[in-house]
Amino acid sequence: MRKVLFYVPLVLFLGLSLFLLSGLFSDPRERDAVMVGKPLPAFSLPDLMNPAQTWTPDALKGQPFLLNVWGVWCPTCNAELGYMTQLRNEQGVRIIGLYYVLPEDPMFGQVFNLPVLQAEVATKLQQFGDPYQFNILDQQRRLSLDLGVSGAPEHFIVDAEGIVRAHHIGDINPQVWRTKLAAVYQQFAGGSQP
């Protein structure tokens, strides 16, 4: 018995190192997708390019879609535009943009100016590809907060009933789409379009 006691520190350490090893190959900043299974939060926001048009959760229902939180200020978002355009054209994925506006810094004379922003967005989309059916403008980032968005880019798969089915933090590339998102999207797309 006494002899066994002296092996306790060794056993504890070996157990711990198993976790350390597995921890080496996972991202410590990954968060849980708590929105999955919940309906889209209520909102009423203007269209980025056509502010007269207002979008609500009900207006988006009917067909599953990929909601992409992005902004022209974010290089990763711009980089993934190409692949998402490909997804739209080749697989018919319905992609809706949620435009994440950065707060303005008056120290550098920044003021929110919609026409300027629209022009910037148009240039970027022309340059990298335009995957979007349309873009929702989230100037106060209220919808983003309700969706648990912490930055850009982030992606949600929303089904035809407006229920969030997947939440991916970070960019979409062929690997991410294949391993993580394609199956979810197809499952719900298949359901609504037999």
Binding site: R31, D32, A33, V34, M35, L145, D146, G148, S150
Partner: peptide, 8 residues
């Protein structure tokens, strides 16, 4: 906050 961002 936890409803939106998780226990994290």
């Amino acid at each position: 906050m936890i409803d939106r961002y998780g226990d994290f």
